[in-house]
Design a protein around this nucleic acid. Structure first.
Length: 552
RNA sequence: CUGCUCGUAGCUCAACUGGAUAGAGCACCAGCCUUCUAAGCUGGGGGUUACAGGUUCGAUUCCUGUCGGGCAGACCA
């Protein structure tokens, strides 16, 4: 519909300007119904180059508009807006379109099944997932669903660091607990992890338990002094815990990548050699440096430390080089904003390889920090101090649907306050229930009608002309645009906002109009409309990973 | 000190990437269930979009500065 009107405008404008290729015809949905179904500001854009009054230009465009069946009325408003009012029938067509497409309604093929990899969560195996990871999980997974809906071939990937200083720290902490040293004991490692789960791991280790994670089974030796065995066991144990966290959050990854594998397979060494031979490195103070300032960084970075080990960004570069070699021309990294400084370094490292990787590859979606409130006070998220809110606790308290919705419904680049008491105590006020309730209400009506809803596909829709019906059909017709825009902006929260509006339109309609009336023609038209609404609610909730219950 | 980011109703957040009278939810006030689920609907009060400039037909949105919050700025990850 949008495209149809855009083309009509283009035809009308062509006689006025010499070069139509530079024209950017923007059609928007006016906030107020008084301003029609679509509005264009094209006349105001042309006012300057044509040196004419925008209202006069608007009038000329309207006069030039080709005859058509979709538009019932055109008006000039304000400073020179052109407002388009659709004919009743072209509004009603949306219901038929939805019936035809079903689950596919709103999906498009613009991605052309090109490969895209989304890396998200990527928590290190040093503790269970917390709310911050949850936000990454919710946003990342919705992003994947959006990309899929736009025709991309999506790979979900989880990268974790199973080597390095933090893992040593973890190993020491478990070792201490296995020796019976309490977290508040002076002999406990100073920067050790003090959470109670460390004690659980120590206990399981001493009991020689076996844990499975990433399809690998690890059995504890039970030997308190075998650091390597403790490390392997602790990592597997926590990866298993995180798997359970993700499972509770209903998120599935396609690929898990280990940092240690980059070393054992020689990928890190290869990347280092490639950087050296590309000529962007130098030795200084017994260390090997990468001249990242050549690529926009504010200072050069050390690659190999005096002690001989590599700094953390080297495996990062090796990992991303590997992503590129695996054929992902598009990669999106979803991560917390506290890691934003790595963006410049990783990109600089990839540029330094000189292998034709675009400067702005990979893409990043950063989410701001989550503040957790409980009892009116902020709960500090400190893994080492041991007091923090795990994702699984949260899911158990407020439910998977509500947790996902809360964490995905806000713009990623604004900080979010997660009030546990509010989410738990006032579950009825959770916005997600408002949307789900709209779906359940429709199911309930259709249930009482007890007819075959597929027969509604051919219903005569001409009775649908009330304000509530028009508003609902208008909301439905916006859905495909939301799928496109939310994906382009990498902004899943737009889907959540849209669904709230759609649910609102449905609830208003429900209170305004009785559906199960005696007049068969009217009844069928109304049932067709709410059935179409149910489809869109389902499709939209699916994008958020939230269930669409038949009953509540 | 430097960089990134955010600042919108009492609170939590939107605003279709520069559009028309800045919108929802919670909270507050007044109505709506003998009728398809009241987890709902309708109406009302509540705003100098942090502040000051600039760009243009038009700014919450873009630019500059100030103030305030968050996060980064290790040969830690």
């Amino acid at each position: 519909m949008k495209q149809t009107i855009t083309e009509l405008i283009l035809q009308a404008v062509t006689p006025l300007v010499e070069d139509t290729s530079s024209l950017n015809i923007i059609l928007e949905r006016p906030k107020s119904a008084e301003h029609g179904d679509f509005a264009s500001n094209i006349a105001m854009q042309l006012a300057k180059p044509l040196k004419q009054n925008p209202r006069a230009i608007a009038q000329t465009i309207i006069d030039n508009l080709p005859a058509n069946s979709v538009i019932s009325k055109v008006e000039i408003a304000g400073a020179g807006f052109i407002n388009f009012f659709l004919s009743a029938q072209s509004k009603q067509d949306i219901v038929k379109n939805i019936f035809q497409a079903g689950e596919a309604f709103g999906r498009n093929t613009s991605g052309q099944q090109a490969k895209v990899q989304v890396e998200f969560v990527s928590a290190n195996p040093t503790g269970p997932l917390h709310v911050g990871h949850g936000r990454g999980a919710a946003v990342g997974d919705c992003l994947c669903r959006l990309l899929d809906a736009n025709g991309w071939d999506v790979t979900r990937e989880f990268y974790y660091n199973d080597a390095g200083a933090q893992i040593d720290n973890l190993t020491k902490s478990v070792h201490a607990r296995a020796l019976g040293i309490a977290p508040d004991d002076a002999r406990f490692p100073e920067d050790g992890y003090r959470g109670e789960y460390i004690g659980d791991i120590a206990k399981a280790y001493l009991a020689k338990e076996t844990v499975t994670a990433d399809d690998m089974a690890v059995t504890a030796s039970g030997d308190v002094n075998d650091a390597e065995s403790i490390r392997k066991f602790a990592v597997a144990y926590l990866r298993h815990e995180q798997d359970l966290d993700l499972q509770a959050f209903q998120i599935k990854f396609d690929v898990f990548s280990l940092e240690s594998a980059l070393y054992t397979e020689g990928k890190v060494e290869n990347a280092v050699q490639a950087l050296i031979s590309s000529g962007h490195t130098y030795e200084q103070d017994d260390a090997l440096w990468l001249r990242t300032t050549d690529f926009g960084d504010d200072k050069d970075r050390v690659m190999r430390k005096k002690e001989g080990g590599y700094t953390y960004f080297v495996p990062d570069v090796a990992y991303h080089r590997e992503k590129w070699n695996r054929g992902f021309k598009r990669v999106i990294n979803e991560q917390g904003a506290d890691h934003h400084s790595t963006i410049t370094r990783v990109r600089a490292g990839l540029q330094a390889l000189n292998t034709g990787i675009p400067q702005d590859w990979p893409e990043y979606v950063l989410h701001q920090m989550v503040t957790v409130m409980r009892g009116g006070e902020e709960v500090k998220l400190s893994k080492r101090a041991g007091s923090y809110v795990t994702l699984r606790d949260l899911i158990e308290e407020v439910g998977c649907d509500a947790t996902r919705y809360f964490l995905a419904a806000r713009s990623a680049d604004s900080q979010l306050v997660f009030d546990i008491d509010l989410a738990r105590a006032q579950t009825n006020d959770n916005p997600v229930y408002y949307i789900q309730y709209a779906h359940a209400r429709i199911c309930s009506v259709l249930n009482q009608w007890a007819g075959d809803s597929t027969t509604l596909a051919n219903a005569d829709l001409s009775p649908l002309e009330s304000a509530a019906e028009t508003a609902l059909m208008q909301a439905l017709s916006q859905y495909p645009e939301v799928v496109v825009t939310a994906c382009q902006a990498s902004a899943p929260h737009m889907v959540a906002n849209y669904l709230k509006e759609l649910a609102s339109a449905l609830h208003s309609y429900y209170n305004d109009t009785k559906f199960l009336v005696d007049d068969v023609q009217i009844k069928q038209a109304r049932l067709a409309l709410i059935t179409a609404t149910r489809t869109v609610l389902r499709n939209g909730l699916y994008l958020l990973g939230v269930s669409a219950p038949d009953k509540m």
